[in-house]
Amino acid sequence: MLLTKLTFPVEATHIMMFARAIGDANPVYHDAAAAAQSEVGGVIAPPTFPQAVAQFDPDYHLRPKPGQPWFGSGRTPSGIEGQPATSGALHAEQHFEYHRPLRPGDVLTVEIRPGKTWEKESRRAGKLTFRERIVEYRDKTGELVVTARSVAVTPERPVSEG
């Protein structure tokens, strides 16, 4: 079952901003001239950049949208009544397989599919529900560039520090 199909244009400015956010000053992520002299021959994206495809998902639930209530604080501690169904999920695992680096100018087709779902009891957070997602990133020729597998966990209650 396909959950979502997205188009992910990979842009130099986005890569630069992402590299800044992870504190990585490697010129291969922002300096075209220096990157041209390096082994990879031009600017590439850092290994975890594929996750930024969220920017290109029009329905991404963790981005505020005009005219829609947002569950974060404003006049009140939350902009909606009650706990939003999706807000409590935490990232448990992330796995990437790389066939080649992402480069500015790539226009990737990204397909997101659900994987397995399972439950586990935990001392620190009650019942845990795990949900897996498989994300495939392909270039214009249909070649697989990156495969990502993520596992999100929804705890019954906030995770205590252990």
């Binding site: 992870i22 490697n26 590439i44 990232h91 695992e93 992330q94 990437f96 790389y98 680096p101």
Partner: peptide, 28 residues
């Protein structure tokens, strides 16, 4: 979690070279 993975990815790419990773997987 992905900020921690991104910060850590820098250690890998500084060690093995940019564009040299075939696989990178973590548990938070």
């Amino acid at each position: 979690g992905m900020l921690t993975m991104g910060l850590t990815g820098k250690v890998l790419t500084n060690y093995v070279g940019a564009g040299r990773l075939n696989r990178f997987g973590v548990r938070f």
